[in-house]
């Protein structure tokens, strides 16, 4: 087998190894999300289906966030404990290693989440899905990926799982409420501050749409914020890859 072939084989095998390792945590998603979805659909009669879907995504996205933190924590643990050395001593490049874990903390939970979200509706009544706005999902994935990348980079650079957990909880939960309070307090007597609206939509494109919908005068701002979020995600991915290529050492 040639050098390139070996490299690709090693990457594919390691990806499968890591994905299979994180699969057991993602089973948590497969337990929690369909349970919530099914229970909510059969037990509540919402004002409208669109609202029900938004509510479901809002509630279950919490599980999604949690599992991205868990995956990033596992990644940082792999680095801090040194178990990564075993695989990085094989024909796996440092970049391949980082890409694998990047996917394991972003794409794998997102796939598990999407599947576990959609399946209950396929079972109950596939028509229910028609009332759901796919843009919501896109925004949720965008938000999930950008926040996951922040947590992932924290793990990659610091190699400290505890710090990853703290940053994860901060960006997914605390910062969200801090900005929500800022948004609301600026809004009560006057229109919300443009800056707060922009920052909110930049960091939380999904939550800002669902929980705090924009005012007409901020529609443009929100669009720019979503684009900025996309640019931020691309920049974070590029930063992680470049860090892996130039700086990342296995100590």
């Amino acid at each position: 087998m040639g050098s390139r072939g070996t490299r690709l084989t090693a990457l594919a095998v390691y990806m499968s190894y890591v994905f299979n390792s994180v699969a057991k945590w993602n089973l948590g998603l497969a337990l929690a999300v369909p349970l919530v979805n099914t229970l909510m659909v059969v037990s509540t009669i919402p004002p409208s289906l669109g609202q029900l879907m938004e509510l479901l995504v809002s509630v279950t996205s919490f599980f999604y966030s949690t599992f991205t933190i868990v995956a990033a924590y596992a990644f940082a643990s792999d680095l801090s404990r040194g178990t990564c050395t075993v695989f990085l001593s094989q024909p796996l490049t440092r970049r391949g290693y980082v890409v694998t874990w990047m996917l394991a903390t972003t794409v794998v939970p997102a796939t598990a989440y999407l599947l576990s979200f959609v399946v209950p509706f396929v079972v109950m009544d596939v028509k229910l899905l028609a009332s759901f706005d796919p843009v919501d999902f896109l925004l949720l994935l965008l938000e999930g990926i950008s926040l996951s990348m922040v947590i992932f980079l924290t793990g990659l650079i610091s190699r400290r799982p505890q710090l990853v957990a703290v940053v994860g909880v901060f960006v997914h939960m605390i910062l969200f409420y801090v900005l929500a309070v800022a948004y609301y307090s600026t809004y009560y007597y006057n229109p919300p501050s443009e800056l707060v609206a922009f920052v909110y939509a930049l960091i939380y494109p999904f939550k800002s749409k669902v929980l705090y919908p924009g005012w007409p005068q901020y529609a443009g701002i929100t669009r720019w914020a979503v684009l900025a979020n996309l640019a931020l995600s691309i920049a974070l991915v590029t930063a992680a890859l470049e860090y892996a290529r130039r700086i990342f050492e296995v100590t």
Binding site: T6, T9, V13, Y14, F87, P91
Partner: peptide
């Protein structure tokens, strides 16, 4: 299993 993975990685 660990050895099998490493063996597959090395072809």
């Amino acid at each position: 299993r660990l050895l099998r993975h490493i063996a597959r990685m090395k072809g």
